[in-house]
Design a protein around this nucleic acid. Structure first.
Length: 800
RNA sequence: GCCGGAGUGGCGAAAUCGGUAGACGCCCAGGACUUAAAAUCCUGUGGGUAGCGAUACCCGUGCCAGUUCGAUUCUGGUCUCCGGCACCA
C-alpha cells in the first residue's frame, strides 16, 4: 500500500467535516464532556509548534472520549484584540480588522490541516461585534454591582512619545520605543474590584482538580497572609494603623515608617517642622520608576518627620516616625512598624539612621543581620509574652491588643485590583459615558454593542489618550440617562477581557439574545478539562474564574468554578535547548513539517517527544522517527489475514489497550505511543496477523494519527468512520502473563533469572535458582543466611 | 530572599506502595538491497577490565552520608539548572 499524505489527509478532513463527526450536540442524551484549550491570538506569523503541543493533549483526549460514547464539546476561537495587530496597523496603515480576518483564516486552515477535531461551527472571535457586545454587557453588570471603579494611580509614561506604557514596555525604566527615561504619571484608571473575591478565589481551589504547581502559583499570586492591625497614636493624637504578620515582635518596635504616598501625610504635615525636606523626598519618589524603587534593596532612604513622635501602645515610649519608599502604599495600610532585630529591611533602615535594634527573640545573632527564624525562637524583653514561642506569642498578644482596643486580627492579600483600561484602539470600547449632570453612566443594554469606530490613524493621541479620543463623532454623545450632551470614555479594555468569559460563549456561540442561554450553560458547564500555558495560570485563569464567580452570583451562570480540572503543557524549546524565538532563528514551522512528513507524523512526534508537562527540546529527526513508525504500521497491513478473527498476541493486545487508555488520561502520551510501538514491533515479527489485532492497533493509534488510521480502517473493508467507532476494551485478567522471569540476587547483586510459571512456589524457584551457574560460583565457600522471596518478582539470597 | 519543578547513556526519555536501571525513539557503526545515492530492512549500541569467542567481573541514575537482603525510588545534608513571585511588613 502506498500513500500520499496530502491526499489522504485532505480526503479524511473533508469526510469528517461533511459528516459532522466533531459536532457537539446541545442537550444530547449522551454524557457530556467539555474539553477546553486556550484560544490563540491570531498573529501574523501563523501557527507555531507550541500551539500544536498545547492543543494535542485535549485533542487526543477528546477523540478518545467521543469513541467512549461522550458528547464532546471541543471548541476553538480567537483572542483577537491586541497590541501586535495594532502595532502592525500603525506600521502599515492596514486596518486591524482586515489583518485579523486574514490571520484567522490562516489559523483555521492550519488547524484543520493538522486534523484537529474542533467543532468548527462554534468558532468565536473576541473582536467581532457579536462577541464584544457581551463583553461590554458583562462589564456593565460588573459596574452595576459596584465591582468597577475609577481611581487615580501612577502609570509609566514616556514624555517623548507621550504614551502610557505597560511594565513590559518600560523595562529597566526606559521606553522600549525611544529609549528615553520613563516617568511616573498620575492617571485615572478603571479598576475591577477583584480583591473583593480574593478569599473566594482561594477557597475555590479546594473544589477543583488543578495540578499542584498550578494551585501553588495561584495561591502565591493571591498571597493571603494572616496578621494584625496595630494602632499607634502620635503625640499629635493622630492614629497610625500598621499591618504586621509578626505581632509577637511588638516590643522590638523602635520606629514607624509610612509610604511616601500615604494620605496620612496630609494630616500630619501641618504639625512637623521639616516640611520642605519631606516634600522633596515625596517628589523624588514620584520620579523614580517602579524599577528603580525595587532595585536598591540594601540602601534604604527616608526622612524622619520632625516635631512629633509616635507612642508605643504597650511601653508608652516615644519612637520616631519616618517616610521611606521601601514601604508600599498598596499593601496593608501603607504603614509599617520597624522591628530591626527581626526584619532585614527594618534592620537595614535602622543601621542607616542609627536607630536602636532591640532583640525580642532569643536564639539568633543580630550583630550582622536580622534574626527572622520563626521556628525556633523564644520571646524575651517582652513583658506580656516572655518565654513563649513565636506562634503562642502571636496569639497571646493579638488577644491582648483586641481586648484593649489597640488592634485586631486581620488578613491581607497581595493581589490587587485589576487595572482595566488601555489607551489603545484595538480593544473593546468601554461602554461608559461622562455626563456633567449624572457622572459616570453605563450605556443602556439595548444600545450595545458600542461599536469601535473605523479610524485611519492608529497612533495614540497626545497625553497618551487612546486614538479614539481623536474621533469627535465617537467622543461626543448623549447621556443615556438625561440625554444631555456628554462625552464617551475613549479607553478600551485590556487583552484579558475577551478571554475572561469565552468558555461560556462556546456553549452557545451564536446566541443573539444573550451571552449564552442558561439551559445550554447548564448542560455544558463546567469545563471538564482545561489545558493551557503555565504563563496564563495566574492572570487569565484567575481573572476568568473571577468573572465566572460573579456571573454565578448574579444568577446567569450555573456553576461557581468554571474549570473542574486544569493542566499545563511544557514549552517546546528549540533544537538548541533555548526558548524558540525569532531572534534566535530556532523556530519550527508546523506547515512545513506537515508538508514533508504529514500531519499524522507531526502530531505523533509532538506527543512522543517527552513528558508533556515539561519543557522539551525539538529534535529535527524526531518527526522522521514518528514517520518511520507510522510507515511500519502501514506495512503491517500487508500481512493482515482478513479471514482470521482471533487475537494473535492476546496478552500484549490487552496490555496495550490498558496502558494506552490509562496513559492518555494521565497525559503520559510518550509512554502511550511507546506502547503502540512495542505492539507494532511485536506484530511485525509475525508472518500473518488477524484483522482483530490490526483493528485494535489502528483504533488506538487513530487518536494520535487520525488520517492514516481512517484510511487503513477503510482498507480493512470497514464502512464506518473510525473517529465514530468504539474505543477498544481490555480484560484485566487477560493482561497477565503466565510465564514470568524471576530475578535472582545474591547479596543484592543480580546473578541470573529464572523463567517459571506465575504463582509458582518459592521452593520450586529456589530449586532452579541455586542451579544457576553464577549463583553456584557466588556461593562457593559461603553460607546462606536467608533467602527472601517477593512473589513473582525477585528472589534474594543473603550469604556470608 | 520565598515558593514550585527538574538533575538517569552521545541526545529526547522509561522504570518510583524499594525489587532485573536505561523500555520506546533519535543519533552513530556494521551489514542487506542498489551501478550509485536516498529511502527501506536487519544487527549492534551506558562505561570499563579480561578473553579469539560465547561470556565473566567491576563501575554506573548530580554530590555526600544513612536505612535495607536490595535505593533512580525512602531519610538527612549538599550542589546545579529551569520556572514563578518578590522591599508584601
Amino acid at each position: 500500500m502506498q500513500f500520499q499524505n496530502s491526499i489522504i489527509e485532505t480526503k479524511w478532513q473533508k469526510r469528517w467535516e461533511e459528516e459532522r463527526v466533531f459536532k457537539a450536540v446541545d442537550f444530547s442524551d449522551k454524557p457530556k464532556w467539555y474539553g477546553l484549550v486556550e484560544f490563540p491570538y491570531p498573529s501574523g506569523i501563523g501557527m507555531h509548534v507550541g500551539h500544536l503541543r498545547a492543543y494535542s493533549s485535549l485533542e487526543v483526549i477528546s477523540r478518545k472520549k467521543r469513541m467512549e460514547g461522550y458528547n464532546v464539546l471541543f471548541p476553538i476561537g480567537f483572542d483577537a484584540f491586541g497590541l501586535p495587530t495594532e502595532n502592525y496597523a500603525i506600521k502599515t496603515g492596514i486596518h486591524p480588522r482586515i489583518v485579523t480576518d486574514a490571520n484567522i483564516k490562516t489559523f483555521i486552515s492550519q488547524l484543520k490541516s493538522a486534523g484537529f477535531s474542533f467543532d468548527y461551527d462554534r468558532i468565536i472571535d473576541t473582536s467581532s461585534e457579536e462577541y464584544y457586545k457581551w463583553t461590554q454587557w458583562i462589564f456593565i453588570q460588573l459596574f452595576k454591582h459596584d465591582l468597577v471603579y475609577k481611581s487615580k494611580t501612577f502609570v509609566n509614561y514616556c514624555p517623548k512619545c507621550q504614551v502610557i506604557l505597560s511594565n513590559e514596555e518600560s523595562q529597566g525604566g526606559k521606553c522600549d520605543r525611544c529609549d528615553s527615561q520613563v516617568e511616573q504619571k498620575q492617571k485615572d484608571v478603571w479598576f475591577l474590584r477583584i480583591t473583593k473575591y480574593a478569599q473566594r478565589l482561594l477557597d475555590g481551589l479546594n473544589e477543583v482538580d488543578f495540578t499542584a504547581r498550578i494551585k501553588t502559583e495561584e495561591e502565591n499570586w493571591i498571597g493571603r497572609s494572616e496578621g494584625a492591625y496595630i494602632d499607634f497614636i502620635t503625640t499629635t493624637k493622630h492614629e497610625i494603623k500598621v499591618f504586621t504578620t509578626r505581632a509577637d515582635t511588638i516590643y522590638g518596635v523602635s520606629f514607624l515608617v509610612l509610604a511616601p504616598e500615604s494620605p496620612l501625610l496630609t494630616d500630619l504635615l501641618p504639625f512637623i517642622n521639616n516640611k520642605e525636606e519631606i516634600e522633596n523626598y515625596i517628589q523624588e519618589t514620584k520620579k523614580k520608576t517602579e524599577f528603580e524603587r525595587l532595585n536598591f534593596n540594601k540602601n534604604k532612604t527616608g526622612v524622619e518627620l520632625k516635631g512629633l513622635k509616635v507612642i508605643h501602645p504597650l511601653t508608652k515610649k516615644e519612637i520616631p516616625l519616618f517616610i521611606s519608599d521601601y514601604v508600599i502604599l498598596s499593601y496593608g495600610t501603607g504603614a509599617v512598624m520597624g522591628v530591626p532585630a527581626h526584619d532585614q529591611r527594618d534592620y537595614d533602615f535602622a543601621k542607616k539612621f542609627s536607630l536602636p535594634i532591640v532583640e525580642v527573640i532569643k536564639g539568633g545573632d543580630i550583630s550582622e543581620k536580622a534574626f527572622e527564624d520563626v521556628e525556633t525562637g523564644i520571646l524575651i524583653n517582652s513583658p506580656l509574652i516572655n518565654n513563649l514561642d513565636v506562634e503562642e506569642a502571636k496569639k497571646t498578644i493579638i488577644t491582648y491588643l483586641e481586648n484593649n482596643k489597640l488592634g485586631e486580627k486581620t488578613v491581607q492579600y497581595k493581589m490587587q485590583d485589576w487595572a482595566f483600561n488601555r489607551q489603545r484602539y484595538w480593544g473593546e470600547p468601554i461602554p461608559i459615558v461622562y455626563c456633567e449632570h449624572c457622572g459616570q453612566v453605563p450605556l443602556n443594554e439595548e444600545d450595545l454593542p458600542l461599536v469601535l469606530p473605523n479610524v485611519k490613524e492608529f497612533l495614540p493621541s497626545i497625553n497618551g489618550d487612546s486614538p479614539l479620543a481623536n474621533v469627535p463623532e465617537y467622543v461626543n454623545c448623549k447621556c443615556p440617562k438625561c440625554h444631555r450632551p456628554a462625552k464617551r470614555e475613549t479607553d478600551t479594555m485590556p487583552q484579558w477581557a475577551g478571554s475572561s468569559w469565552y468558555f461560556l460563549r462556546y456553549c452557545d456561540a451564536r446566541n443573539e439574545q444573550e451571552f449564552a442561554s442558561f439551559d445550554k450553560l447548564k448542560y455544558w458547564m463546567g469545563v471538564d478539562w482545561y489545558n493551557g500555558g503555565m504563563e496564563h495560570v495566574t492572570r487569565h485563569v484567575i481573572y476568568s474564574r473571577f468573572w465566572n464567580l460573579f456571573l454565578n452570583d448574579i444568577g446567569v451562570v450555573p456553576v461557581a468554578e468554571p474549570y473542574k480540572k486544569r493542566t499545563a503543557q511544557g514549552l517546546i524549546l528549540g533544537a538548541d535547548g533555548e526558548k524558540m524565538s525569532k531572534s534566535r532563528g530556532n523556530g519550527v514551522d508546523p506547515t512545513e513539517m506537515i508538508n514533508i512528513y504529514g500531519a499524522d507524523a507531526l502530531r505523533t512526534y509532538i506527543l512522543f517527544m517527552g513528558d508533556y508537562e515539561l519543557p522539551t527540546p525539538w529534535d529535527p529527526n524526531g518527526v522522521k522517527g514518528a514517520k518511520r513508525f507510522i510507515d511500519k504500521v502501514i506495512r503491517l497491513f500487508e500481512i493482515v489475514d482478513l479471514s482470521k478473527d482471533e487475537y494473535t498476541l492476546e496478552t500484549l493486545i490487552h496490555q496495550t489497550i490498558k496502558q494506552v487508555s490509562k496513559d492518555i488520561e494521565n497525559l503520559k502520551f510518550n509512554t502511550a505511543i511507546s506502547a503502540l510501538m512495542i505492539l507494532t514491533n511485536a506484530l511485525a515479527e509475525l508472518t500473518s496477523i488477524s484483522k482483530k489485532d490490526y483493528q485494535v492497533l489502528i483504533t488506538l493509534l487513530s487518536v494520535f494519527a487520525p488520517h492514516i488510521c481512517e484510511e487503513l480502517n477503510e482498507g480493512l473493508g470497514n464502512k464506518n468512520i473510525l473517529a465514530n467507532s468504539k474505543w477498544p476494551e481490555y480484560l484485566e485478567e487477560k493482561t497477565i502473563e503466565n510465564t514470568i522471569e524471576i530475578a535472582v540476587q545474591v547479596n543484592g547483586k543480580l546473578r541470573g533469572t529464572v523463567k517459571i510459571k506465575r504463582d509458582s512456589k518459592q521452593k520450586d524457584i529456589e530449586e532452579k535458582a541455586f542451579l544457576l551457574p553464577n549463583v553456584v560460583t557466588a556461593l562457593i565457600d559461603k553460607t546462606v543466611i536467608k533467602t527472601i522471596y517477593i512473589p513473582n518478582k525477585i528472589l534474594s539470597i543473603v550469604i556470608k
